[in-house]
Design a binder for these strands. Structure first.
Lengths: 118, 118
DNA sequence: CTGTATCCCTTACGATACTG
DNA sequence: CAGTATCGTAAGGGATACAG
C-alpha cells in the first residue's frame, strides 16, 4: 500500500529529502564501502568535488544524523567521518541504486542523447 | 569493490544524479505503486506540489528515459504517464529507501531537532 | 485538464583565497 | 589538513496567471 510510505503527515518522505542533492548519497556510499575516512581521502576518492562542497555535504549528513564526526586532538588537525546506525542502514538501498545504474546507466545516457538530438 | 559503481568515467554516478532533487523519486514511486496516472491524479496523490513543478519533474524523468508520456487525441486533453523499463527497475531501490524511512525517519527528525537545539 | 510563462526566492554548487 | 569566508552562477521550487 502506498500509504505506508506516504503517510498524511509526510514524515516518510524524509527518505527522499535527505538525499535530494548531488553529493550526499555519494558520500554515504563511499563511507559504507571504505569505512571511516578523512576528508582528504574522500576528496581523492570522489572526483570533481571541492573541499568546501564536501564539507557542506558532511555537515548536512551530520545534521540529519547519518554521519558522525570524530576529532583527534593532534598537532596536524586530524578528523574522520563515519556512518551512524541510520547511515549504515542506508547503504543497502544506495547500493541497490548503484546496481541499477550499472544496468540502466547507458539507457539514461541514450535517452538524454536522443532527447537532445531532437 | 567501489570501482564497480564509481568508475573513472563517472558514468555510474547517474544513479545519484537522476534522483538528486525533491520530487522525481516521489513521482517514480507513485507511478510504480499505482501504475499509469494522469497529472491531475498525481497532484491529488502527492500533496504540496504545484502543477508546474510536477510537470518539471515529469519532463526531467522523460528526459532521462524513466517515464513515458501518452497523449490521447480527445476533446478534453487527456494524458497519462507510465514508467519505462528503466523506471520500473528503479522502484525496487526506491521502495528500499521508503522502508528505510519507515524505520529511521524518526531518528532523522530527532537528529535535526537536537542539532537545532544547540 | 494540460501545459507554459513569469517573477521571486532559496539553495546547491563551483572556484578561490584565507584562517586555525 | 581541516574548515571557513566570499563571490558568483545555475537550477529547483513555489505562486500565480494564462494559453492550448
Amino acid at each position: 500500500m502506498v500509504g505506508d510510505v506516504f503517510a498524511a503527515d509526510c514524515r516518510a518522505r524524509i527518505a527522499f529529502e535527505v538525499l535530494a542533492n548531488r553529493w550526499d548519497s555519494v558520500v554515504v556510499f563511499i563511507l559504507g564501502e571504505s569505512g571511516p575516512m578523512r576528508p582528504r581521502a574522500m576528496l581523492d576518492r570522489i572526483g570533481g568535488i571541492s573541499p568546501k562542497v564536501l564539507n557542506q555535504a558532511l555537515r548536512r549528513l551530520e545534521y540529519n544524523g547519518l554521519v558522525r564526526r570524530h576529532r583527534y586532538a593532534e598537532a596536524p588537525p586530524r578528523v574522520d567521518y563515519s556512518l551512524t546506525e541510520a547511515g549504515t542502514a542506508l547503504i543497502g538501498p544506495i547500493r541497490a541504486m548503484g546496481a541499477w545504474a550499472a544496468v540502466y546507466g547507458d539507457a539514461v545516457v541514450s535517452a538524454r542523447d536522443r532527447a537532445d538530438g531532437l
